[in-house]
Design a protein around this nucleic acid. Sequence first.
RNA 1: UGGGGCGUCGCCAAGCGGUAAGGCAACGGACUCUGACUCCGUCAUUCGGGUGUUCGAAUCACUUCGCCCCAGCCA
Length: 548
Amino acid sequence: MQLPEATNFIEQIINEELEAGKFESVGNNIKVRFPPEPNGYLHIGHIKAMCINFGVKERYHGTLNLRMDDTNPAKEDYEYVDSIVEAVKWLGFEYDKLVFASDYYDRLYEIAEKYILDGNAYVCDLSAEEITATRGTLTEPGTPSPYRGRSIEENLKLFREMKAGKYPDGARTLRAKIDMSSPNVNMRDPVIYRIAHVSHYRTKDKWCIYPMYDFAHPVSDAIEGITHSLCSLEFENHRPLYNWFVEKAGFKAPLPRQIEFARLNITNTLMSKRYLKKLVDEGFVRGWDDPRMPTIMGLKNRGVPPEALKKFCADVGVAKAYSVVSSAQLDSCIRDDLNENAERAMAVLNPIKLTVTNYSGEEEVDFETNPVKGVGARKIKFTGSVYIDGDDFSLDPPPKYKRLQKGGTVRLKSAYIVRCDEVKLGKDGKVEELLCTYFPETRSGSSEHSDIKAKGVIQWVDAKYGHDAEIRRYEPLLKDEEYPDQDYAERLNAASEKILFGKAEPRLWECDENTPFQLIRTGYYKKFTEDGKLVLSEIVSLKDNFNK
RNA sequence: UGGGGCGUCGCCAAGCGGUAAGGCAACGGACUCUGACUCCGUCAUUCGGGUGUUCGAAUCACUUCGCCCCAGCCA
C-alpha cells in the first residue's frame, strides 16, 4: 500500500509496522480510539489527543471509535457524555462508532473468569490499606498476599459471590497474579475488580463489581480491534500491564499497541479536570462553558474557531518531551483564523461624542466586512454625529500617537478625515464632546485628490444609527495584588509555574474587558443577553499595542 | 539512592552518521482607510556536559548532570 508520509513519531512507527506487514491479516485497517472518561467536560488538552487520533484515522483511512471509558460509576454521568459528543462534533471530528466501556462489562467479566481459570488471577481479602502496605516501596519488593495461593475453584466461587453481591464494598478484590517483586510497581498484583455497590449511570444496579482501568482499557481495545492505543506519557509505566492483560485474555494478533505522547500544557492555563470541576461546583465560573474556562465549550463561547484550535495542535506537534507551549502560540492561531475569516464591524467601548460642525444631513458609506477575503461590504449611515472610543482620543498624547488629539486629524474609517478643533470638558474634567471639521474631498473611496493626511484611522459608531450592545465583562479569577511579583510578565510566569506544579490557586484565562483584545489582536468582543446567551460577536480594532 | 521516560534557539519542534527545517516570540525595515494584516530582512559554528568510535556525530558507544512519571479498591 502507498504509505502517507509520517508527520510525527507515532505515524513513523505505524509506517514501519505497515511495511513489516503487521496488519495484513486485518486488511491494513488501522483502528484507533479516543477514550475520555465521562466525568467532566473536554478541555483544550483533549484537542491535542483528538488531533492525533483523528489524524491517524484520516491519514491511514482507518477507523476511530469514540469510547466512553466509564468504569468508575461514582464519577460518571450522561451530562458528560453529551458534552463530550457535542465538543467532538463542534470541532468537526467524525468518529465511526460511539462505544462505551460499560457495554463490555459482561465480556470483561468472562475474561476475568478466564484469568482465574488460567491461574492468572485470584480473589484477595486484604483491605485497601493492607494492599498498600504489602505492595512494597519503589526500592523494596512487595510481599505476596496470603490469599495468592487460593485454588482456582475457590477463586471462582468467591469471584462469583462478589458479583452476586454477597460482600460489602472493599471486602475483597480480584487481583492479577503477576509479580510482587517487580521493579515496576504497577505489576505487583494490581486490582482488576473492586466491589462497589454504586448505581452506574448506564448499567444502573446490574453490577456491584466494576473493572479497573488497567484491565478494562487494554481489553476494550482488543475487543474493538484497536491497532494503536495512543495515550499520554503517564501511562508508560502501565504498558507492560497493558500487554499482559491483552495477552492473557487470549486475543489473536495483531494485538493493540500502546504508544505514549506528551500531553499539552499551555502557559497560564489550568488543564486539570479536577480543578476545573471545583471552579464550576463552587461557583467561581458560570459553568463548564464559561468563556474563562479552557474547556472546548468555553473556547467556543469565546468565539474561538475550531479550525484555529486544530491549526494550533498541528503547529505544536507531537513528541515525548515534556513541554509547556506559550499561550501566544494559541493566540497567533486564533488571530490568523479570525483575520482570514471573521466579519468585521466597528464598535466603541467607552464612547466619546464627536460632532462634525460643518456637516449636516446623512449619507451611506461602504464598510468592508472582510478585507482579507475581499468579499462583503455593507452600508453604514453617517450623519456627522458619531461616537468614537475613549482610547482613540488623547488630551496628552504620547509621541507618535496615531489617533486623535486636539488640533490633530484622523480618518473615521470608511468615511472622512476630520480635524479636532475643540474639546469640551465636563465638570469632572473628562472629555465630553469633540467638535471637529470634516473634509468632503477625503471621502472614502473618492477618486478626488486630496492633500489632507490623517494621522491614523479610527472606528466610530453613528450617534443616530448605531445601536447599543451589551458586553458582559469577566473578571480574572486571581486579583492583581494576589501575584507575588511586580512585573506583569513575571507575574504571569510565576502563576503559570504554580499551576503547572499544582501549588497555587488556579489562574484561568483572563476575561476582563481587555482580554478579548489581547487574545485576538484583530479584536473581537461578544454580546450576551441577560441570561448569558451569546448572541453575536464582532470584530473591533486592535487595542493592546496602542500604547507601546 | 528500584523501574520507566525525556533533555536541539526565549517557547514548541524537525532531524534517524554527511556537516542544524519550520512555527511562535523578538528585533530591524517597507506597505497600509484597522499602530492589524501583508511583505522583506535579522535571530543555534551549535544540539545538557564530558570522553571515545569515525574521513565525518545532534545523530553510534561510554560516562556524567538535570527534569518528569510510578507505591488509588481513579482514569
